[in-house]
Simulated assay, not measured.
Amino acid sequence: MSVPRPGSNPNANLYAQLKRDVLDRLPQITMVEYVPDDIEATELRATFDPNRLDPPTGPDSPELIVQWYRQDPHDWFRINYIDPNTDFHAGWHQDEDHPDLGRAHFQYSTPSEEDRWGISFEQETSSLILWEIVETLLEDVHSNYQ
């Protein structure tokens, strides 16, 4: 398991940017919160309205958890989607957990299967990478694995 990158700045400013530029703009998301709070944020937690997803899921609200640390030469991040209704999990990770898959990988698990593979992003900035991940989640991953 990778250890989050150390640093005195818990990335509260980065999380404010990701919240404002991406998560607050998605109609499927009903709430975004800083964990533990907006000053010492170590992650963002976004709650989806299960009826606004295609296909709908429910009754419990799926979550998207964003952990992101700036570092050179490449940021460390984990973006995880969890649907408690179907026990589906999807994750986009740029960490050291699977060096055989390259710098970043996608992984998913359902009650009956799991898999992971290397990925790359078209974008380079954190907000645009998160947009790319959320678009992939909503347009491909959610509908193909639910």
Rank of each mutant, 00 (worst) to 15 (best):
V35C: 06
M31Y: 15
A41V: 01
E132H: 12
N13M: 05
Q28F: 08
S8A: 04
F88S: 02
E63Q: 15
Q28G: 02
P56A: 01
P59G: 05
E33N: 05
I29W: 13
D21F: 08
Q94P: 07
S2V: 00
T136P: 13
A90W: 07
F88H: 12
E33A: 01
R70N: 12
N51D: 12
I133T: 08
K19Y: 14
P84S: 10
S109H: 12
R52N: 06
D37E: 03
T110W: 13
D21T: 04
L14T: 08
R25F: 04
S61D: 10
W68M: 01
L18H: 10
E113L: 06
V66N: 11
M1N: 13
S8T: 05
H98T: 01
H142S: 06
T86S: 15
S8L: 05
F121P: 11
D49A: 00
A12D: 08
I129S: 10
Q94V: 03
Q28D: 04
Q107R: 04
Y34R: 08
H74R: 14
P59A: 02
S61G: 11
V3H: 13
T47C: 02
D115Y: 13
R78N: 12
E43W: 14
Q71N: 07
T57F: 10
G102I: 03
G7P: 12
H89K: 01
A90V: 03
D140I: 04
T47H: 12
T110A: 05
P55C: 01
R116P: 15
H74V: 08
V22A: 05
R103F: 08
L64W: 13
L14I: 01
D21C: 10
F48W: 11
L44Y: 13
Q71E: 14
A90D: 05
V22L: 04
L26P: 11
D37H: 08
P4I: 01
Q146R: 14
W68D: 03
F88C: 03
D72A: 14
P50S: 05
D100R: 02
Y15N: 06
S61M: 01
P4T: 00
V141A: 02
H142P: 10
L101W: 05
I129F: 09
D24S: 15
Y81D: 05
N11H: 12
A16Q: 14
V134I: 04
N51Y: 13
E139A: 06
L18T: 02
I39S: 14
E96H: 09
E33F: 04
Y108E: 01
L64C: 08
L44C: 01
R70C: 07
Q146F: 06
E43D: 07
R45W: 04
